[in-house]
Write a protein that binds this DNA or RNA. Sequence first.
DNA 1: CTCTCGATGCGCT
DNA 2: GCGCATCGAGAGA
Length: 195
Amino acid sequence: MARLSREFYARDTLAVARDLLGQRLVRLLEGERLSGRIVEVEAYVGETDRACHAACGRTARNAVMYGPPGHAYVYFIYGMHHCLNVVTADEDFPAAVLIRALEPVEGLATMRRLRQGRPDRELTSGPAKLCQALAIDRTFNGLDLCADGPLFIEAGPPVDDADVETGPRVGVRGDEAALTAPWRFFVRGNPFVSR
DNA sequence: CTCTCGATGCGCT
DNA sequence: GCGCATCGAGAGA
């Protein structure tokens, strides 16, 4: 399967979020492929989105969101967790899609080890869980997903509109618009969708 | 099953 | 200092 192109990411963020469902996130770890099917994402769109990390303008932390599309934006949260986003839309417009859940496909044994023997259902059913299962940390911040590197997204079988469900984003703070925007996209009925 | 709460590092006000 | 795009343990039902 082919690696997704820069053009895929250089589109409207909500369209990218929708289309990321069904694609394959791949992590190369010591020669092994760890991968999963993307089943849940959330869009964060520009400085007017009060839940977006760029809501207060550009800082050192969110600078990658202002860069070119197709790069990883990885941040550290709650003193112990990492979350993975992919940068979308045009350069200088801060937007990204948070990868919230995967259905594990390759490298299950290694994922179980990295997740300290948690049940398979809990290997990648959350944004910080999947980073732990795929050994993704801050050193991946700014990584080009379109280049020849240890982290990328491959094309997978598309998800039919009938199987896509949307809703408000999980765990966000902000104004009324940020709390109610239906910018969470997930595969209906998939057991690896968070909560 | 549901709910509550503590852990823990760091960027930003 | 404050607050965070979370997780998992523990308690109760």
